[in-house]
Design a protein around this nucleic acid. Structure first.
Lengths: 205, 205, 205, 205
DNA sequence: TGCTAATCGAGACGGTACGTCAAGTCTTAAG
DNA sequence: CTTAAGACTTGACGTACCGTCTCGATTAGCA
């Protein structure tokens, strides 16, 4: 994601002083910390350099734009959410949703999501990264849970899985992105997901 | 939303030359047009002033920040979506969803949404405006359709309406915000909504 | 000096509300007071208007530029220095010089001189006014004193008067313009002038 | 006079890219050239930057105000006037005056003088620089000539030298500052100086 | 062990846009 | 028609960062 910048002038073999991995990490950490503090808009490369105790060129040598840097900082810190398997569809889904909401619904998580969504429209590259690192894994987790349930006969066979996944994902992202955090309640989410489950042919809770 | 900036210095009666409504509109139009051209990130107040044939101070007299200006430009152009009433719940919902997606799913609509979501986390004022102008009306429209249906007995009485509304809204916003526009299909949306309707106690289509 | 601005549109007879002489004076006074406070550089027409409790257009209707206004404010307050006639040349000259230095050597007087000298090079109009209102009267006063002395035989007949005048004027303006005010001493000036008088053929004191 | 601005943050050894002497000179030259063109009042830092092909910050990094810049530009270009020594007082003085008037009486010279005099009253720092760089050397030159003459017995011993110097300087500055350039004649100046010399006890020419 | 070449911190460089201020003009309502 | 008020266009102000470019001073691996 980074590194394949300008460097490597001709000769394959690394010559001269190698780039410091430590500096690399320090920069990413400063970026994340400042990002949480002042937001994407007011994040300046100069402040990152100062905070990391690093020269500007050391940053530009690795990332060519603020966007690049921020994307890398966020992607390299992506949290993972485990997929539960208790044998009961409803329980699995609700457990997974609860964990996912806990992780992404934090102040930082919401900022990250907001930043990414806001940038996507003007930055196709970021969109792609975001899609493959944040959304696809969530959908895959959901798909796994639902497929297992369908295999066990807990879900009507003719239910289009992708539609059900979109409905559940939609409910979650709607709460994360659109609703003011004060208005989000887990109980509410569970109700909505139950409607989807019922509509997908699961026995009533 | 604007206007109540600095003005009103003591005397109630307007004194001095009144602010030109024409200039006001011209600025907002230039803002929208440039916004669509270069995006929020690369929109400069100076370019707006130049495009509108106006001095910078004339802009700063009305809006104190770029954010303020852009929000006003977007809000003052907010499209309205009519709520259909054919007597059939499914038909009403699908019709409404289709119109809403057409309006908000356009290139500009997506940009607007992305911009707002991305800014919300760092701008509470914008969040409020956005919530009351974009989200609440949509929810109200949905609520109206569902309430009518419940009154007619087309919807099970014990279905929590707010949960159903969140599910439908979620499906739509998920498509608008999260999915790459290329992957959005109306058919897919209809399927997901049908799952919600079925789960809410509507007879199968 | 002012007044012959835009006004007088055709009809000779004043029609409509006449210009207030009181306002005119108030503006000039505010100008002088602010000038002494902040200096020419940082004097703003807006501050003059505010201080005088007057609209900007009321000022611009009378003076077209800041320079015009300031020049008028200074000229309209020009002090006059009486020419003594005691029958003794030396006494007359020294008395006159003392009075002149007292008037022009004040803090305001020095500021006025400095302002005018500094502006002269870029403003021929001001130069003319300055020359005729400030310098010529001083020279005339000196000329009168010297001519009287020459007529009385107190001054050698072949002394070129204009050269003597220039020498005396030079001594004074040099003290006023060039020397730091702290280094100016009347005794010193008298010594220098005595040299000129002796060189002009007056008996030693 | 410049340079000792922000720099020197703790570490003695210069760190980072050193300031370019070349741009430094270019800026000063542009300043002088524009100063002669449009005058101090209408000189803008932006125009200097444009003319020198330099960013504004490069100027502000070295000089904090327009005044600072202009003072430095003028001081760094101060002309020197040689002191003649022919053995004859009258000849020496007249030669020196002629040279001095030629240098300072030029269009640029007069502007510089006017600028400085006009600014002195509101800028003590400039006053000091001006006094020590422009006035004192001239007085020193005169003093040297007169002292030599007094040592040779060409000048009466009891003549106060500083008064004589002030008289001669006064005559010159009066011509330079007060008189319109059209009215200045060298012959006139020589006459006035001869009066002073005669008054100081020099044999008549 | 020294040589070589890219790295490092630092900060100056030419620029762009910021948000503020004042200049001089224009437009109201009140007198 | 003048006045006070204040919005208008214009243009410079001084600041903050941009992304690029020197500097002298480290580092590795290669010779």
């Amino acid at each position: 994601m980074a590194k394949q910048q300008s460097g490597q002038r001709g000769r394959d073999r690394a010559s001269g002083r190698p780039r410091s991995m430590h500096v690399h990490q320090t920069i990413l950490e400063s970026t994340r910390s400042l990002l949480a503090e002042v937001g994407y808009e007011h994040l300046s490369i100069e402040s990152v350099a100062a905070d990391a105790g690093v020269g500007k060129s050391t940053i530009y040598r690795r990332w060519s734009t603020k966007e690049d840097l921020v994307v890398d900082a966020l992607v390299s810190a992506k949290p993972t959410v485990a997929v539960p398997d208790t044998g009961d569809l409803r329980q699995d889904i609700h457990a997974w949703v609860e964990t996912y909401m806990a992780v992404m619904g934090s102040s930082v998580g919401r900022q990250v999501l907001g930043l990414i969504i806001g940038t996507v429209s003007s930055n196709p590259h970021l969109a792609e990264v975001y899609w493959s690192r944040y959304v696809v894994p969530a959908n895959d987790a959901l798909a796994a849970v639902l497929q297992r349930a369908q295999a066990r006969g807990q879900l009507r066979a003719d239910t289009p899985l992708s539609a059900a996944i979109d409905a559940v994902s939609g409910i979650m992202f709607y709460q994360l992105l659109v609703k003011p955090s004060a208005q989000v309640s887990l109980q509410h989410i569970h109700q909505a997901i139950d409607i989807v489950l019922r509509g997908s042919g699961v026995y009533d809770p």
